[in-house]
Design a protein around this nucleic acid. Structure first.
Lengths: 233, 233
DNA sequence: AATAAATGTAAACAATGTTAACATATAAAA
DNA sequence: TTTTATATGTTAACATTGTTTACATTTATT
């Protein structure tokens, strides 16, 4: 046992050997850290200090720092997916509403968890991400949910009958691009990103939807859900 | 003077003090390096080794590593801009062709210079980029060229009369997103990115262009320039 | 020719990820 | 229960990195 001093007062005593669940605690601290800091700033010292362990204790639970990051990426994708893709599968909701809402959740999640989003989709740990997943496996369920929703729209005559993979890439590119521009602060209108998303959604929709549906479905939906856009004509 | 040995032969003699133009040589080596390697792998040791100087020589020419990166960002944006935005200003070329070509150059430049693209638009050195430029100053001429081209289209009745800034953001987001997905290898069809770009361009166009132009201008242009898309209907 | 400025070097720092040798607590086997 | 193996923790040392300080040499200026 040793005495842990917090601030100026002796607060608690703590068994310094066999922490209990150090592995989970490392992960929790790491996720807490990137909630407010860039992933690049995360060091092993931060983790050992926060757990009152030695600098090499983490190597009993992760083979390397990269292995810790790998676990974070896996868990991160699960959390991201849970926030975005279930909406696409809500078959009782109108398809276009599902597109709109899941995209909105995509942007919102990126904005609320910028460091996690960069960890998942950025380049720094791409070598790790590439090892554990690709676009076509089931772990990337968000993309396949999008593709399936597009195919559902094709069957019901709402969506143009093109290659659904290509269509999904177009949609995803736009979302990823807007999310990236927002969180990497290219767009300085910070808390009003919705105007950009709505404008982008309208554009995407006009590219996706069949001509015969355009006049029927879009306009009522536009009035019902979208924020009004400034028409300067 | 000292003898520089390259390979097994004594090739040249070289004054080891006062190199001449070390600053430019550091930059050249750095740009050459990121042509084939990630910017994160660039170390000061690589630069000093390549110039046969000491590890601290670079501090006579740059205040810090970040200052070197800053210069690279400035010069990098100039090169990127020169490859993408002049097309938008070629007033003798049809506007839609200009949109199409400059976007294509955007994607191609990103694909051919992935590490430079990430340096310019990624998060790692965002703190440096933010210090030296923002979307609204003239150094970010690519964006304002896009915005101006959109406004030109509005005047001639081709482009919908909405907020041109918003429209430009939608276009840029899509390009940035697609470029990022390509260079961060989310799309494994490496050398056939054109199908994605063409699909995206069509989608963007249908969002930008006025209804009355849609049937007149797009279809001929589509047949003239775009690669045919697979229609699975 | 003397002096100042520019440009180079060498040596040392702290921070980082990592490993090796060692220590102790817990679980399993006797 | 005792013995032993395994899991988990510590300490000390490494090389690598960006950086600074003190010093050296070349070039430019007076």
């Amino acid at each position: 046992m040793f005495t842990l001093i917090l601030g100026y007062n002796i607060i608690m005593k703590k068994n310094d050997y066999h922490h209990g669940n150090l592995k989970e605690e490392f992960l929790k601290i790491a996720f807490d850290f990137i909630a407010h800091n860039d992933i690049e700033k995360l060091t092993l010292k931060i983790l050992s200090d926060a757990t009152n362990t030695s600098r090499s204790a983490i190597y009993r639970h992760f083979k390397s720092k990269d292995a810790l990051i790998e676990t974070m990426i896996i868990e991160g994708f699960e959390a991201f997916d849970a926030a975005v893709s279930p909406i696409l599968r809500e078959s009782d909701r109108p398809l276009i509403d599902r597109f709109y809402l899941s995209g909105k959740h995509y942007i919102a999640y990126a904005q609320n968890h910028p460091n996690l989003y960069r960890l998942l989709f950025g380049n720094k740990y791409a070598h790790i991400r590439e090892e554990i997943m690709n676009l076509h496996d089931e772990r990337c369920s968000g993309f396949s949910a999008l593709k399936q929703a597009i195919e559902e729209g094709q069957k019901s005559g709402i969506v143009k009958k093109k290659e659904s993979f290509q269509q999904a890439v177009v949609v995803w590119s736009s979302l990823h691009g807007l999310a990236s521009l927002i969180i990497d602060s290219f767009l300085d209108i910070e808390n009003n990103y919705e105007q950009f998303y709505d404008a982008m959604f309208k554009s995407l929709l006009s590219g996706l939807v069949t001509d015969k549906v355009k006049l029927l479905s879009i306009l009522p939906f536009t009035e019902r859900v979208l924020t009004p856009t400034t028409d300067i004509s």
